[in-house]
Amino acid sequence: MKKLLILLLLAASTLTSIQAQKYFTRDGMISFSASSPLEKIDATNKGATAVIDAASGAVEFAVLIKGFIFEKALMQEHFNENYMESGKYPKATFKGKIADASSIKWTKNGTYPVDVKGIMTIHGVSKEVKGKATIQVNGGRIIASSNFELPLADYDISIPSVVADKISKTAKVSIEVALAELKR
């Protein structure tokens, strides 16, 4: 009887501990480049939020469009006003899953290339996307990074013909977030 109780408690504790294995950040870095030979169009956001659920491999990202900093202030204004309409669509989000999360040992140092699949929402348009990412476990911290390309047209971001030569039709996005364990 007692054995069973202990077993139960153990089971319960492991279950809850698995459930508690979530990693998060509020200052993840997301940058993109839509540069052309004529114009350098780069921006960086250092305030991305992200949560990874180690048990299920669920991943969520959110980033404020207004938080992207450009070298040219006017370019930043136009990015918000004319292209991203950040007043109407303040955030870009990603909700997805790491395909083979069970192969990652979240408590042991190491680097794991993974496949991620999910829904990307930018400029009010949601699209299913998949891509490759790297999870690096380093002394209790999780560093997740990924590089991918987004075709602007997929998200209804229209480029007027006047500046068509100046802006690339795809944005190269790069993500690097260092996540810490979420304690509650």
Binding site: K22, T49, V51, D53
Partner: peptide, 9 residues
């Protein structure tokens, strides 16, 4: 928790 992870923050 999986429904909306970000709300945890």
């Amino acid at each position: 928790a999986q429904e909306d992870l970000l709300s945890l923050l």
